[in-house]
Amino acid sequence: MTASVQLQDVTFAYRSGHPVLGGVSLTVERGTFLAVAGPNGAGKSTLLNLLAGLLVPQSGTISIEAANIRSYRQRDLARKVAVVRQESIPPFGFSVAETVMMARTPHYGHWGFETQADRELVAEALDATDTAPFAWRPLADLSGGERQRVFIARALAQDTPILLLDEPTSFLDLKHQVEIYDLLKSVQRDRGRTIIAITHDINLAAQYCDRALMLQRYQGPEASAKPVGSRASTGQCRIGPPGAVFTSAGIEEAFGVRVFAAPIGRESVFLPLGRLARDAGKMDLQPAPENPSPPPVN
């Protein structure tokens, strides 16, 4: 297996100064489904924008498909990485088919029109996401779940080995959340794409991802140097199989909430319970099942 995405000691701070990512190193193998979780402000979206080439780290290197991200032109990077962001709808009413076709814009012929190859890629993307039946409806007329599938279709039509998603299931109801995850899983499995999805839904992500990344707020160089608690920690991020990263201790440490945990089968579910929650007391009665072995650290 080869690395699809690799970060080496990446540090990033916005112009205002406070560093968001402090020396993050991680490797995502080709064809992996990686779920990225963590509290607000931990730098999940920053990480995504770095991988999309929209931000440039102050130090460290990012490799995409074995080449430094700085060596790509925007157009070439868009052949490697496609991004699905939280909804961005234009003020003009493009149809579903037109929207998905836009992924092919950099590859149009000289007169600004798509080629046969572009049309085939788009048709395939529409089929894969089940958006073909409403390909001619305007984007604005769709439900949130349908629209999210259209944006995933557009990312697929970009025909990239890597797919980045920023909270693909926020604002969606339960059925649509599951549909999106099933879709992503099938894209990963059937097409061998690398999927990196930011999510707040740890329970759902644990059911689908191969690897999980828990990102914490950067606490400064001192915090990252010393081990936290009994676990060896690189400070800001922990990566590993979902069962090892998504533990009640890990979640409590990252988010600062107490969680009720229960195993389902191969994975567990976690329910955060606040002080006034009706079953808040349950957490004391039933200690969360903890993974006996220390989580592997990458």
């Binding site: 080439g53 925007q74 990485v81 991004v83 234009p90 493009f94 814009t105 970009q158």
Partner: peptide, 24 residues
């Protein structure tokens, strides 16, 4: 302007989206 009109389509989705689609 006609020659940048496909890029204008993508730009209608916002500059960040357009850049991710490979538009300069």
């Amino acid at each position: 302007l006609f020659f940048i009109s496909p890029q204008l389509n993508a730009l209608s989705f916002g500059p960040v989206e357009a850049q991710s689609m490979g538009i300069n």
